[in-house]
C-alpha cells in the first residue's frame, strides 16, 4: 500500500488476515470468532475499503491468536467471500477461501425460546444444519426453527 489516500496498516508477524469480507461485516466476523478486543491481541480492522473483486470490502488482521480451520470456516456464515491468510514470521504460510460448514455446533443460540437447547440446566449444545448457502439458512437440529443471516446478526447484537 502506498499513496496519501490509502490507509496503512503494518504487517503482522504471526496471526491471521481475513480479507474480502463483505463491506460492513468486519465487526460481525470478530464477534463470531469470539474476539471482543479485551483479550489483548493486536487487532486491525479496516472497513469499507476499495476492492477490485467486491467493490468495497472489510479486512481483519489478528495477531497472536491461533485459529483453526473449523473456526475460520464459521466466518463464511457471515462473510462467504472471505479469504484467510495464515501468517508466520511475516510470511503467508497458507491461504484459503472459507467455506460454509454443513453443521454449526455450539456457536449460536436457537431463537426459539421453547427449544430444548435453551434450557439452562440441560447438558446440551445448540446444533444447526445448513440447508441453504445462498441465501443462508440454518435449521435447528432440535426444534426445526429456521435461522437466517439476520438472526445471526441479531444474536451477535449487530442487527
Amino acid at each position: 500500500m502506498s499513496g496519501k489516500r490509502e490507509l496503512i496498516i503494518s504487517k503482522i508477524r504471526d496471526g491471521v488476515v481475513i480479507d474480502h469480507i463483505p463491506a460492513g461485516r468486519a465487526l460481525l466476523v470478530l464477534r463470531l470468532l469470539g474476539i471482543s478486543g479485551r483479550e489483548g491481541f493486536r487487532v486491525a480492522l479496516v472497513m469499507n475499503v476499495e476492492s477490485r473483486k467486491l467493490g468495497t470490502k472489510d479486512i481483519v488482521k489478528i495477531e497472536g491468536r491461533e485459529l483453526t480451520k473449523d473456526e475460520l470456516n464459521l466466518v463464511a456464515l457471515v462473510a462467504p467471500t472471505a479469504t484467510v491468510n495464515i501468517i508466520r514470521d511475516y510470511e503467508v504460510v497458507s491461504k484459503f477461501k472459507v467455506s460454509i460448514p454443513d453443521v454449526v455446533e455450539g456457536l449460536l443460540k436457537c431463537k426459539n425460546p421453547r427449544c430444548i437447547t435453551n434450557q439452562q440446566r440441560e447438558p446440551i449444545r445448540s446444533r444447526f444444519r445448513v440447508i441453504s448457502r445462498e441465501p443462508l439458512k440454518l435449521v435447528c437440529e432440535y426444534c426445526g426453527t429456521i435461522h437466517e443471516l439476520g438472526d445471526i446478526e441479531k444474536y451477535f447484537g449487530l442487527a
Binding site: R114, C115, I116, T117, Q119, E122, Y142, C143, G144, T145
Partner: peptide
Amino acid sequence: RHSLEGAAKF
C-alpha cells in the same frame, strides 16, 4: 411427551 420443542430428540 414434553412441553419443549426438541425434547424427544435430546
